[in-house]
Design a protein around this nucleic acid. Structure first.
Lengths: 81, 81
DNA sequence: TCAGCATATACGCATTCTCGTATAAATCAA
DNA sequence: TTGATTTATACGAGAATGCGTATATGCTGA
């Protein structure tokens, strides 16, 4: 399970997917990160102006990390949005 | 060459490394993204409040993309900062 | 040593975040 | 359908972004 992210929007989708996969609500995730539930909502919706820290904090809270690689050119369907 | 990023700071390092590897100056990268050189400076320094869009735009401009995976636990030395 | 390019930092402005506190609206179960 | 949970949206405050425009500082090489 390696999710691709090329934009804030895709990143938000990945976060949402992972959160749901772990059976968490936005409120619970928010609590772990010390941010408001509304902030998670915006993050997952892909707000481009969301702070980087919020993204990384969310990934950390979900036990995820990011790997940067050269663009593969191929993007699978599940990552379209 | 797959660079790990677990924080804004690490992400900034990855961007800088990639930019230099491609022989680009902050100014040139900034031009490609339509942002100021100063913005790149902050991004690379790891400013946690940097907007997500700036990060993804930079990665795109450098021909990179991000993959989200479960934390591996191991982090190699070169990614420490 | 001093020019030159590269990177870091600065000020006012407009924008937008996140916070705190709430409340719509959408979802789902009983 | 009603009630309850979850998610989206709202307002004012305070903070910090990125912009435009500059400049200070850094570093490299002739």
């Amino acid at each position: 399970m390696a999710d691709l992210a090329r934009s804030p929007r895709m990143a938000g989708s990945v976060v949402r997917k992972a959160r749901l996969a772990q059976g968490l609500t936005q409120k619970e995730l928010a609590a772990r990160m010390n941010v408001r539930q509304a902030t998670i909502s915006k993050l997952e919706s892909g707000e481009p102006a969301t702070r980087m820290a919020v993204l990384f904090d969310a990934l950390a809270a979900l036990g995820l990390e990011v790997t940067v690689t050269p663009r593969s050119g191929k993007s699978n369907f599940e990552n379209v949005f």
